[in-house]
Design a protein around this nucleic acid. Sequence first.
DNA 1: AATCGTAGCAACCGCCGTACA
DNA 2: TTGTACGGCGGTTGCTACGAT
Length: 275
Amino acid sequence: MKRKRPAALRGGEEAAAAALKRGPWTPEEDEVLARFVAREGCDRWRTLPRRAGLLRCGKSCRLRWMNYLRPDIKRCPIADDEEDLILRLHRLLGNRWSLIAGRLPGRTDNEIKNYWNSHLSKKLIAQGIDPRTHKPLTAAADHSNAAAAVAATSYKKAVPAKPPRTASSPAAGIECSDDRARPADGGGDFAAMVSAADAEGFEGGFGDQFCAEDAVHGGFDMGSASAMVGDDDFSSFLDSLINDEQLGDLFVVEGNDHEHGNGEIGHGDVMESKQ
DNA sequence: AATCGTAGCAACCGCCGTACA
DNA sequence: TTGTACGGCGGTTGCTACGAT
């Protein structure tokens, strides 16, 4: 593991301006933050640490709350159905971790991102699938693809050897029962998610790996599609894609894909398939 | 028992988009 | 229209536990 500069010497917007605390949060800090947010809300993160009496920057407080202290956070390992959903969504959205997380109640973008980088990408590579493009990593795909995939996922071993460690936080997260109960308002509002996606432009449409090719091939753009069909329809469309058992077929890469010549999916075809 | 390498994940950084004066 | 503050996102870093030697 490379270590560049000590954290204290790295540039930071807020932390550099004052002697603010960095590094792992203590249970005491967690308690102060959780109590303050419960009492005052979390509308102004910038000034929150000062008001709460914390020697942290606002960003750090927000991150801690969003990724760890929020009461609807699940602390249990990601289940098979969640993993499957992550795979589908990543295939559809690329590294839009926040959008993917919005589809998985109780899960954070950071958690999903970490899970992808440490588990799923390796799993896909072990299966001969490029985790960035979801294309096969065949011999024909040559070593450059594989190397790129490996580099992109910072994988070190083909098969993860250890079960995921559990978090050691005092924070009260969602207790996962066997039936994996989920909160009703835990971020599963897909319409809101798509609206958010639309609000942010959704430029590039699917994942970043598609951007260049989409531009070159005049391919599908999520933002355009959303504008064309409206948020509700678009939401339903995307939802149906996620749940559609044939999604895999739509996105399965044919080695002899003729339209793009590189196995890329034809997004336009996907849109047509809705009608 | 000691050392080393790796996995997992919490936390940080820099950038971007939006809201508002 | 412009500048500023802020929230949010994705990528990256670095700490720590743990397995291998």
